[in-house]
Amino acid sequence: MDHIIKICGLSTPETLDAALGAGADWVGFVRFPRSPRHVSLDSGRVLSAQARGRARRVLLLVDADDAAIAEALEALDPDLLQLHGHETPERVTAIRARFGRPVMKAVGVGETADLEAVTLYRAVADHVLLDAKPPKSPDALPGGNGLPFDWRLLAGLRPGDALDPGGPFMLSGGLHPGNVAEAIALTRPQAVDVSSGVEIGPGLKDPDRIEAFVKAARAAFAAAPPAPVAQQQGIPS
């Protein structure tokens, strides 16, 4: 199965074109007003239409209620919902059932014990994204902070271990063109996700960094040994 490269937090037609031109498989649009990558419904509608048929479109939401989800879905018509807040497994189940879209749940990782949540979310979500747990600050964003977690937490796990992610996952948090190859070699994810790591300022994507990230990730995936059989299914292209 092909590996997936996602560029998240795209907010202008020019940078979206850069991501699509570089060969990104998935592109992400953020609906979270506190984020510098937040897009209005009107902008999101235009961007999503621009990407239709060229990449899988992901709508990122944070603890959104049903009305906000419905409003965003009507405007952007995404291929997949990314839940990046404190949504419980029960809430994930309810969102999937009500809105009929595939769901990816982000799990914040700061220590080994945090991986215990993966099993719970894998049972109810279509995909799991492992991100760095946000700093303990009231101003911290739930994602896009440019901080990695300790990838060695995943490097030592083997299929069947108690805290093994148990299947394919998307790796996020602090990735950039200079470290994505190391991250892939250590953790052997099925997919990688970048936002602030291809920016020249908060929310300001850089086409050159986007292209460099996609090239570095693609080369690293090609060089990495195949994942264990238990991890080869689950994240479609």
Rank of each mutant, 00 (worst) to 15 (best):
E87D: 15
D77F: 00
P36D: 14
L76M: 14
R54P: 13
E71G: 09
L41F: 09
D63F: 05
P78S: 09
A125T: 09
V124Y: 05
R57C: 12
R57P: 09
V46L: 13
L130N: 11
E87G: 11
D66W: 03
V58C: 11
D77A: 14
R34V: 06
T88D: 14
A97S: 15
R37D: 11
E87N: 10
L41H: 13
L73P: 11
D126N: 03
L81I: 02
P102Y: 04
D63K: 02
G53F: 05
L83I: 03
D131T: 05
D126R: 00
P135M: 05
R91S: 15
E90K: 05
V118Y: 03
R91G: 13
I95C: 08
A94V: 04
T88M: 10
E71P: 03
I69C: 10
I69Q: 13
D65T: 10
L129W: 01
R56M: 12
V58E: 14
P78W: 02
A117L: 14
L120K: 08
A117N: 11
A64R: 04
A70Q: 14
G85W: 04
S137H: 04
V124I: 06
L47K: 08
L80T: 00
A125F: 04
A106F: 00
A68F: 01
D126V: 00
L83K: 01
I95Y: 07
R34Y: 08
A97G: 12
S35I: 09
V46C: 05
L115P: 04
A68I: 02
P78N: 07
D114I: 01
D79N: 04
S48L: 06
T119I: 05
A117M: 10
T119S: 15
L47Q: 10
L47P: 03
R98I: 04
S40Y: 05
R45N: 12
A67H: 12
A75K: 10
L59P: 01
P36K: 11
A51V: 05
V109A: 03
A94E: 15
L115H: 03
P89L: 09
R45D: 14
A97C: 09
A72Y: 07
E71H: 08
P89D: 14
A67D: 15
G100K: 02
S137E: 11
P102Q: 10
A125I: 03
D65K: 03
P134K: 00
S35T: 08
V39N: 08
D79R: 02
D126G: 01
A49L: 09
K136M: 07
I69E: 13
K136T: 10
K105F: 05
A68L: 11
L81K: 03
A70Y: 06
